[in-house]
């Protein structure tokens, strides 16, 4: 269990319990003692990080992750009520996520989307078997900070390179980070095609997205 203290500990534990009422109760109590930014960062987010760890360890499951994320969002809203408009919590970043054209694998990519969303990113999951151009179009449309590209077959892996090439052609590469993943993808492949990062699993996708975007 993570080492949180006092009311922050209670907030984090409430998030891990995945119960909205408990989170709201703990946040209400913490509000009296600590600034909202600290409660969000060291209480709610810390709890959500622990939820991600417990998911990877098989102790919590996808519905719990969603319930915890929902509870965390409610906690953030409650704290924002007392914050000046300019200092309210913003999304960590906007990420377009999808599986390349010709590849119908959906589940791993969906888990990554869910975990990123739960961590506080605005995620646009554009599905599987997605034409290369759609990744770029969606990134433009949403002003995305990052594109996540999944591929589960060696034959479709090339699609990851093609998205990067199209981004370059469109002059967008410098302002959009690229994350690649999927069974045949590796760090060496990511380096070869000029991706910004490779993630082995969903929790690594969250930590690498944070590293690159925060």
């Amino acid at each position: 269990m993570a080492d949180f203290e006092g009311s922050l500990h209670e907030v984090a534990d409430a998030v891990i319990s995945c119960k909205k009422e408990k989170v709201l109760e703990a946040v209400e109590k913490a509000k009296a003692e600590l600034p909202p930014e600290e409660i969000i960062d060291k209480g709610l987010s810390a709890g959500m990080n622990q939820v991600g760890v417990l998911f990877e360890r098989g102790k919590l499951f996808l519905p719990h992750v969603m319930m915890a994320a929902d509870a965390m969002t409610a906690g953030v809203k409650l704290l924002e009520e007392g914050m000046p408009a300019g200092s309210r919590e913003k999304k960590l970043g906007t990420i377009v996520n999808g599986t390349v054209e010709g590849d119908v694998h959906d589940i791993g990519k969906s888990i990554v989307s869910t975990m990123l969303q739960s961590a506080g990113f605005e995620v646009h999951d554009i599905g599987r078997d997605v034409p290369i151009r759609n990744f770029v179009q969606k990134a433009k449309e949403t002003d995305a900070d990052m594109i996540g590209i999944s591929a589960l077959m060696t034959t479709t892996l090339q699609g990851q390179r093609e998205v990067i090439e199209l981004l370059k052609e469109e002059g967008l590469r410098s302002r959009v980070k690229i994350m690649v993943g999927g069974a045949p993808a590796t760090q060496a492949w990511a380096d070869k095609i000029g991706a910004d990062c490779y993630a082995e699993n969903a929790s690594e996708a969250v930590s690498k997205a944070k590293e690159l975007l925060l």
């Binding site: 996808l62 519905p63 969603m66 319930m67 929902d70 959906d106 969906s110 989307s113 969303q117 999951d125």
Partner: peptide, 12 residues
């Protein structure tokens, strides 16, 4: 219906 989509929409 795809449970991945339903989950993301909090329709657990």
């Amino acid at each position: 219906e795809n449970p991945g989509d339903l989950m993301k929409a909090f329709k657990i």
